[in-house]
Amino acid sequence: MQSYGQEGVLDWAGPLLQGALVTLEIGLSAYVIGLLLGLVGATAKLSGWRPLRATATAYTTLVRAIPELLLIILLYYAGTQALNALLHEFGVKGSVEISGFVAAVGVLAFVQGAYMTEVIRGAIVAIPRGHIEAADAYGMSRPLRFRRIVLPEMLPNALPGLNNLWLILVKDTALVSVVGFQELFFTAQQAAASTRSYFVFYTAAGALYLLMTLASNALFTRAERHVRRGQPGT
């Protein structure tokens, strides 16, 4: 016998896992883009040109002083409209629909980039000045200097911060459910509402998030051991 509205709790296991996968996808995409934004931001903050430095400082300060949820809602609506306005400027007719995925990733990456900027800037500043000068004295080009000297020396300093930011990002992905993007928590809310098993589904969603954070923590610990090889006392 089929009765309306009596879905089993187990029927939602598949969608929930699917949602977890989407969460990982937007998390990873936003992380990579945020990392690039952070590199650009850190370069801007360390540059000698004042306007560039001021722009980067305004970016990191504002993003970090405004609540994430508010920022996500603001950017979610403003971002779409701003892009359309920009396209109109360039003479493109009509409006583009930004997919939920792109908007979610864009918004999270923008927020993430501000924190990344600070972590990367701090890690670069911690490199002894002499090492950079030595690289210059050897006649290394800037890309070579970055790849051979700056990057390997910066990573041990940056990795704890990067780990921290990834954990924050995984948890921040839940915020895009508020603007109606279907990820893990949004699915859990749907499941809870339709089966009326609120307790079960919020616990399940929490457990999946915990699994992700614990697993990535273990990975980052290994990565940190790897980049710190050859350093004394670790």
């Binding site: 992905t173 928590f185 809870a192 307790f199 919020y202 929490g206 998030y209």
Partner: peptide, 23 residues
């Protein structure tokens, strides 16, 4: 502490409000 720090605050909020509250 690991559980609280490893899950989103939004999920905890709904867990207490919708989950614990309803029970």
């Amino acid at each position: 502490t690991t559980t609280i720090r490893g899950t989103p605050l939004l999920v905890q909020l709904f867990f207490f409000y919708d989950g614990v509250g309803r029970v």
